[in-house]
Design a protein around this nucleic acid. Sequence first.
RNA 1: GCCGGAGUGGCGGAAUGGCAGACGCGCAGGUCUCAAAAACCUGUAGGCCUCGGCCUGUGUGGGUUCGACUCCCACCUCCGGCACCA
Length: 876
Amino acid sequence: MTKKYQPQTFEKHWQNEWEKNKTYKAARTSSKGKKYVLDMFPYPSGAGLHVGHPRGYTATDILSRYYRMQGYDVLHPMGWDAFGLPAENAAIKAKTNPKTLVPQNIANFRRQMKMLGFSYDWDREFATTDPTYFKWTQWLFIQFFRMGLLYKKNTPINYCPTCKTGLAEEEVLPDGTHERCGNQITKKDLPQWIFRITKYADELVDSLEGLEWPKGILEMQRNWIGRKEGITITYPIEGTTESISCFTTRPDTNYGATFIVLAPEHPLIEKIQKGKVTSTTVTPKNLKEINDYVAQTKAKTELERISEGRKKTGVFTGFYAVNRLNNKKIPVWISDFVLKDFGTGAVVGVPAHDRRDFEFAQEFNLPIVRVVVSNDGDSSPIKKASQVYEDEGITINSDFLNGLDTHKAKEQIMSYLEEKNWGKRIVSYHLRDWIFSRQRYWGEPIPMVYCESCAEKKISGISQKEKGLEFRNQGIEKKTKTWKAEIEESMYGWFPLSETNLPLDLPDVPSYEPLESGESPLAGITSFTDTSCPNCGSNAKRETDTMPNWAGSCWYFLYFASSEVQSSNLVQHPSTDNWKSEIGKESENWMPVDWYVGGAEHAVLHLLYSRFWMHAMYDLGLVNKQEPFMRLRNVGMILAEDNRKMSKSWGNVINPDDVVAEYGADSLRLYEMFMAPFSQEIAWSTRTLQGSYRFLKRVWSLGQLYANGDTQNLPENNDLQIKLYKTIAKVTKDVPEIKFNTAVAAMMEFLNEWERAYNLHKETLSKDDLKKFLKILAPFAPYMTEEIWRNVLQEKESIHGALWPEVDESLLKITNVDIPIQVNGKVRGSVTVPIDIDRDKVISEALKDTRVQKYVPEGTYKKVIYVPGKILNFIV
RNA sequence: GCCGGAGUGGCGGAAUGGCAGACGCGCAGGUCUCAAAAACCUGUAGGCCUCGGCCUGUGUGGGUUCGACUCCCACCUCCGGCACCA
């Protein structure tokens, strides 16, 4: 009696065995090398896993098992990105502290992951909320502070006037309303910690080179950093001592400038309004118009400004600037299409070569001068928006630039302007500095103290260097001196906690709702805020903001690879020496991450932030590599069966617990790998899952034959064995190419042949070959293969420690091939010939085919193409 | 508007210059059964048809090639992201 395939009867058993025997323990011992295979660790929400999560986790699990079986040392860890707003809000709602709620969520996630058979080294599990981990996150903050990369500045944050609370970006809906109460949010100025990521902008673009990432993601990172080279040109205002600076990336078009536009918030406008800029040309009427326009703009929300579309509005200031290139007077206007925070808040208008400038010029009847033509030389005037020429070309109407191409014209004009001291070359970035503080409870407390009395004495902790901390080289040390000088003044009175006082834990309090002032909830807890100055000992206040959710994920991959994470013997406090011995040394054995897998939604932020931290840590001499992630692959989202996103509110979420209860974990894993190419979005289908379930059932049944002994093994080198070896070769090739769907298809194809051999002739694989098949299936279906391996084949050691099957290449050598025969490119027949047959013989064989004869009358043809082993094509 | 990704049977997809539709789902017919489920077998792009074949066919239109789903040019549609970025 053959045992039925009932995964429920053995999956749990093997899960426990693997855990007990530490089957997946990571250690550096192999001479073959290492593979660090990492998932983007999840945020443990209250809802638990849905079937979308295991898609990425199964992929990394297959890679890990595959490399382990090939003899590599594999580090495959899992942990929890557990700080953040959803947990905080859920805890507020449940009237509890996230410190009690989050571990419950984690326990559920862990249970589900173990159920799915992922081969994580659970000894390295940790959460970003563990004080043992975030003591280091805080320590790193302090090191970055001492490099001059962090400073405090008043910055507008999102603020909900109805809820009286500061909001994170993700709490604001695209229409500018608060996701919870639905009311319009506003901006509020609050002091924020700023992380100066722009100091690394160039480096972060340049070192994208050499990463094996999807092209699209690399492109998005490049665009996000958005490096632009241009020049800031200064225009004096006629009849005054004032001037206006404008940034442009197209100085070659500057002879075509016909106006200047200021953002309504530009500082010069206030001066004009207050009458501090005088010139005979400004009339009181203009001043009223200016006042009205500025007031109108300020009354509008950002949303209103955008929703009004591209229709240009504006007002003339009455002043004229001088374009010193040609001494032309150009009017100075105000318009809200110019953004105060971009560039200098002022734009020089070249309407012939910029669409927005053109719309503005048309609206207010300003002149349009063409200065660039395309290669066809058409220099007709620009009359319609569709004629605006924004591309590069040949310069005209521009004095000494005439006839030059855009690139050369740009170089010459920039040198000329710098020589005359009328302009200065600038590299600008789309990338902004990173607002690194949150007015929230559930995050790493920022380990800083503010001392009033030290501030008065103009003292700060910025220049105190950590003992033992060495910059990578003198060039970097020099660079950080400049960075520090730029912000020193704003840092008077600020001191980092002494490292012996780390971690700085969150106070255990029942209430931590945001304060009416928009400040962090910690600001209301005096037992937390009141402290003494690390420098002078007088009364001082702690920083009450916490770090954003990103902080913990910026370096977690190093902690997984550390010694400390695996040991119960934790360091007393962070320090450079402790970093080197506990984290630096061991992580060098594993870094960089070889495979990093997660959703494409992290294309920019997380991947950029963690790259930035690594680069800065490299400069601090804390790590030996700048780039954390060598290979990145994106997992496609799994939609619900109704083709919508899975969401509690739609009621269409599929829970892996239910799927596993009915079909087993192996079926879920196999199906998710088979359903579509890995990075593609795809809808869930329980129906289609049954195909994978059936496949496993059939393998199971054939496997059981070996227990009963009613098999007749095939002789060596039979067709089925060769098909098996081809399948092994295919799977071996497909897995590292992340083509799991075709790897599974190949195994299904093999099964079809195997079954046919058994059904027709009661013939089957030798025991040795069965083992090989089980091994290549093992990474996909670890439970079932282990069950057959141990209970049918009576193996003593786990299949997951076995070696990947080698393929005897000589058996795969093809001796005979089917050559399709085409006549004029259409298939008319085929011949079976030895692979090394010569051309003339193929042709004569082909001409024996009666169908071919019909299309090649009397065997005459104009030409014939023979691609050995592939095709034969007669042209008649 | 810009950037990125994708268009192939009833459905998910395979093939990246050489027999389009592997593999799976679904569907149809059959075997087993009192019956159903499960399992197994056969068929399954469309059209024509003398059942041996013939024609058409990979979003659209052109091109390169002996040969194009695959390469090139132009366009259409869908999905994702950003958006008055000087």
